[in-house]
Nucleic acid binder design. Structure first.
Length: 308
RNA sequence: GGCUCGGUAGCUCAGUUGGUAGAGCAGAGGACUGAAAAUCCUUGUGUCACCGGUUCGAUUCCGGUCUGAGCCA
């Protein structure tokens, strides 16, 4: 039975850390010791067939601990944070309902944030508006946004096509200004308000992390990453821009299509992984609540991960 | 040995008709309302190989030295 926290709410534990830090094994050990189940917090693990390039938990690892939110859709479908949140909430309730503890584990920053703060509102954008906005240039969309928001665009990053598109879609769909939508957004309750969410992050010394990143990229290539990507291209990978741009996949596509020398594949993946890790560092620092940080080098026992 | 072309930011290079220099990549920092491993923004002082000469002034012109590549012997 999962114990309630000091304030009576049940505890939901979240384990994170940057790519290649080694969190997967520690999540497994913690869950094994507790008879807990793992809920993945990783946008790419939800895609069936993206196995090698995402370092998805293996069959053997999934034998050790039951995992959720892995292999939920094909690469032609689109994952998004609301979809993730809906599934994650259902999985948490379901596992807890069976009297087992839950460990959320992963490194997708935006999805991680969903456990602590509102990340999107419930606004639905009709297909016609989506198409209308998709047909516009970024410049035209910004002009339209300024017309609809005479008091300004707030913090909107007008240089970012995705942000601009999405903002205009929402203004048109809601018939309201960005400021009004933002005020409403801020009033939303947190998705896991009924839980006491505890976050722990594993950290590792830069030099060691660097080595693990290089080793990880080389191992992926040796394990047949190119074959995996060829299969996925056949299954429609390239119709999903986000999945096709994922690290490991975009470089493999470049090799397959002759834009990158196969001999440079692992090194290029490692380089881009380093950039990702840096971005994750910023995210963890600025977007997540204060949390427990443990050095991988100091970890001896999974019991150290969370203050119980 | 002779000739030719190079030696400029961590890397690959551009440039300065003589007034001490700038791109890409790497690195660093940041943003983040339904693609987030995505998308977007900010950030470039370095004995311009070394030693002399010419000049008010040389990284730029001239000579030499070292050094890399190529060609000829």
């Amino acid at each position: 039975m999962s114990a309630g926290g000091p304030d009576g709410r049940p505890v939901l534990r979240v384990l994170t850390g940057c790519t290649a830090v080694g969190k997967t094994e520690w999540a497994l050990r913690w869950a094994e010791a507790r008879g807990a189940e793992i809920i993945s917090c990783d946008s790419l693990l939800f895609y069936r067939g993206m196995d090698i390039g995402t370092a998805k938990p293996t069959a053997a690892e999934r034998e050790r601990v039951r995992h959720h939110l892995i292999d939920g859709c094909d690469v032609t479908e689109r994952m998004n944070v609301i979809h993730y949140l809906t599934k994650a909430r259902a999985a948490v309730e379901e596992v807890a309902g069976r009297g087992r503890e839950v460990l959320v584990a992963g490194g997708s920053g935006f999805y991680l944030k969903a456990f602590f703060a509102p990340v999107a509102d419930a606004l639905d954008v009709p297909e016609e508006i989506r198409d209308e906005v998709a047909a516009m240039t970024r410049e035209a969309a910004v002009v339209r946004l300024r017309e609809l928001n005479p008091d300004g665009l707030g913090a909107l990053d007008t240089a970012n096509p995705r942000r601009v598109t999405r903002a205009l879609e929402r203004c048109l769909a809601a018939g309201r200004t960005l400021a009004e939508l933002a005020a409403e957004f801020a009033r939303q309750p947190a998705a896991f308000a009924g839980w006491r969410v505890e976050l722990t992050r594993i950290e590792r010394a830069p030099a060691e992390l660097e080595q693990r990143i290089a080793a990880r990229a080389e191992a992926m290539v040796r394990a047949g990453l190119l074959d995996e990507v060829r299969r996925l291209i056949g299954a429609g990978l390239k119709t999903n821009p986000s999945a096709a741009r994922a690290i490991g996949y975009r470089e493999s596509i470049d090799v397959i299509e002759g834009r990158l020398d196969a001999a440079e594949l692992a090194a290029t993946i490692a380089k881009n992984t380093r950039a990702l890790v840096k971005k994750q560092r910023t995210w963890f620092r600025t977007q997540l609540p204060a949390h427990r940080v443990i050095a991988a080098e100091a970890l001896r026992d999974a019991g150290q991960l969370f203050a119980d």
